[in-house]
Nucleic acid binder design. Structure first.
Lengths: 341, 341
DNA sequence: CTGAAAGCGCTTACAG
DNA sequence: CTGAAAGCGCTTACAG
């Protein structure tokens, strides 16, 4: 049924080894043999079997994209873009792409090394990993090269790709401050999450560069949860009517807040200016349209795979493994007002 | 380095075959041996190598989810949900899951059978396939079981999973008609696309059940493109001011139209009622919120894999391979008015 | 109930 | 430049 390398070899009057060498672009094959083999293989419809290849070869590259924990539906499209970036890069560079959706629970059942071993994974890109996940520690000891997206393990042997969250949130906050916002509050994610810490740092940097001092209510944690975010805002505005600007660590929260403010007849941006993070498409269809920080997820995916590729080919220790991908501040209607006079 | 079946066998004082049988749950292994092998394997951290397994075994199931052509960003989250459904089902049933993003161009380079052969694919779920794609013909002749999502090949040997598009659009249209819409127009996708044909049939069914006769402008084709959709609506309303209801074959188009209508100060639902299809999250955040037809993509994914699984295990010819998954009509503000008196 | 052995489809030192 | 052969890590008839 399926035509194998042996069939081709026989038909071409050559050995398995020769056919294999042709298909792997070995240099020292006579032009004549090469052409004959290729023609015949083509005619027979031969395609090398990937499983056999990965099994017998030490040099087959298999890159795994590991998406940790089921992403909330709001974030779905983000991962799809990033996945597409990884996929294309891998495909274009002769690497095998495999996708895994893992959970914290599964990580307990099987170690990272076992996971890689069982699937012949030679390099992994991991997104959505939490610092409390088992893999977080295990990847440091693993011999499999790893690129982390949006998480900096602080380990020189591990690749990291993300935007500069500090600088991005700094700039986002400055949009409000330049527009004359007097009492900005940050609606942050989780107090432990690295991106939250970074974005908070950026937020505070902006305040300080404008000579502002944070109040005790200036940072609120809502765990990236829409309901919590709304509840926090509700209470915040009741207790501190002076608040006139909200910097949200995610669009998901910002969107829910925007909905809430509209229902409360609180005008955006007149009464309160609002900026999110991630630039979900939804924000562009809301009224008012939502300002945000755009991340180029496809590029992040592509860059991650590029970095991983270099690491798998034995990147020098000295070379930097920390890549910052560009982002973009999208100013829209939710910050489209200047209160300066 | 990596611990193999041989290492475990040696340590357990058994043969490779015995260890293999234990891991594959063969029935006739003594309880004693089974336990000893399991304990030792566990202790050694043994995990069976998947590549070796698929290579040597005829019975390993590899299900491929093939997403045809890069999906437009608007549709991204749809596929992510469906993918998640397939993944979970495969994972829970001991099947290997692999994902491929293919393009029409790639389909020309390698036949469907070659594609499956090279990756040891034993069953495929394909989404986004067009009737003009090479695979569309090739799957009929292939010995690899295939489930098509959202496309009915009309071939009894091929599985098909989707909602009942005819009935869904019928119901969606009836929402408008019940609300007193007098001159409804359908903004359809492509005149060749199967879902478009089905949804149009449903639309017309609804009209006829209300005793309405289509006018020459009653169905407009916009190729699922936002710009075209808006342009069509613009012209439509200019030439036929009597139009007071729009049935859109996709939310993507409906959203763009809703934006346009708002800019034109045409009131929805007062002047024109509007219903979409797909129930993208965006619609729920627009003003007014968009009525639509919800598809349970995760369920579609899950059902597809379930059907494929049965087909791979040699489903009887007689058994139906056409699965209709439930959908839901979501009535929201864009149709929230009754013009009856 | 278990072992010995062939085989899955490739790759790659080793010779020549 | 090319062939013969061992080996990648498993599975599975075949015996016993």
């Amino acid at each position: 049924m399926a035509v194998t390398i042996r069939d081709v070899a026989r038909a071409a009057g050559a050995s398995n080894g020769t056919v294999s060498r042709v298909f792997n672009n070995y240099p020292d094959i006579s032009q004549k043999t090469r052409e004959r083999v290729i023609t015949i293989a083509q005619k027979m419809g031969y395609v090398p079997n990937v499983a056999a290849r990965t099994l017998s070869s030490k040099s087959m590259q298999v890159v795994a994209l590991i998406l940790s924990d089921l992403l909330s539906s709001k974030e779905n499209s983000i991962s799809m873009e990033m996945m597409s970036g990884v996929y294309r890069y891998a495909d274009d560079h002769g690497m095998q792409f495999v996708l895994y959706l893992t959970t914290t629970k599964q990580q307990h059942e099987k170690s990272f090394d076992q996971f890689c071993q069982e699937r012949n994974i030679t390099g992994a890109i991991i997104q959505g990993l939490k610092t409390t996940d088992p893999y977080f520690e295990e990847i440091a000891k693993s011999s499999v090269p790893v690129v982390l997206v949006d998480l900096d393990r602080g380990d020189p042997s591990i690749g990291t790709v993300s935007i500069d969250n500090v600088q991005a949130e700094n700039e986002a906050t400055q949009v409000l401050l330049r527009n004359g916002v007097q009492d900005p509050v940050m609606i942050n994610g989780s107090i432990n999450a690295q991106v939250s810490i970074q974005r908070e740092a950026g937020f505070k940097l902006a305040l300080s560069s404008f000579g502002r001092t944070p109040k005790d209510y200036t940072v609120q944690y809502a765990n990236f949860d829409q309901e919590i975010a709304v509840a926090k805002v509700q209470r915040l505005l009741r207790e501190h009517p002076s608040v006139d600007g909200l910097v949200c660590a995610s669009d998901s929260m910002a969107i829910a807040i925007l909905e809430y403010l509209r229902k409360q007849k609180i005008r955006v941006p007149e009464d309160i200016q609002l900026i999110g993070f991630d630039d979900l498409i939804i924000g562009q269809y809301m009224t008012p349209t939502l300002s945000s920080v755009e991340q180029h997820m496809e590029l992040i995916g592509q860059q991650s795979c590029h970095l991983l590729n270099k690491m798998m080919r034995g990147m020098k220790k000295s070379e930097p493994k920390r890549i910052f991908v560009p982002y973009e501040i999208m100013e829209r209607d939710s910050t489209a007002i200047s209160k300066e006079n």
